[in-house]
Amino acid sequence: MNTARFLPAGERALVVEFGDEIDPEINGQVRALTAALTAQPLAGVVDVVPSYRSLLVEFDPLTLNPEELERQIQELLTSLSELNLPAPQVTVVPVCYGREYGPDLPFVADHTGLNPEEIISIHSGTDYLIYVIGFTPGYCYLGGMDERLTTPRLKIPRTKVPAGSVGIGNKQTGIYSITSPGGWQIIGRTPLKLYDPYGVSPFLLTAGNYVRFRPVDKEEYDEIAAQVAAGTYQPEVRSLTDGGRGDGAGI
């Protein structure tokens, strides 16, 4: 258990920092404190922004003074080990790799020396820990990509990457949640909506859970897309079997 460090972020926010690296255990502490503050919100806390190794706590200093907030968080932290976090879940994300949905698959093949089938098999053969949801709504920072897939970002970023695009940016992999500019190598696309503002649950994924990619062909992609559009698609969710790299074990 790392000790927490408190940093002021103005008079209306406080950073609670647990370390300075991408590490499942540190991220687990962030997740545990986030869960505790969400389950029993402290009076005066307005919002929380969890990330890799820290939690930004926004509060109203006119009703809750910063020293008091630090004291209350410190107290919460000492009891965190007793907190029962829900077991992580793995959301299966169908992806149509290559061709028009994954225009950079040939480049990744050239760069890595792997053939497209090997890339697809490695990329879809791991449970990825969702470290952070953020930047744009629903965008996820995933950890645990096989290093053999490491490929540099595009030299000139695209001005428009369609929502659902699955990409590789150096040592990371992720999914674009909204259509936006971007510089990652796009290897496929999912018909699922990571961000659906007017849907019953606007966000598909939650930090601390896992993603597993499942290759689908164009036909299945279209079928799922139609179900997503009709609001009838139920994403496949299963428990973590450690079939991946074991990144989350022990959290």
Binding site: V15, I22, V49, S51, L55, L56
Partner: peptide, 10 residues
């Protein structure tokens, strides 16, 4: 830095 939360006015 490792990406972290951004408060208003940062």
């Amino acid at each position: 830095i490792l990406s972290d939360g951004i408060p208003l006015g940062a």
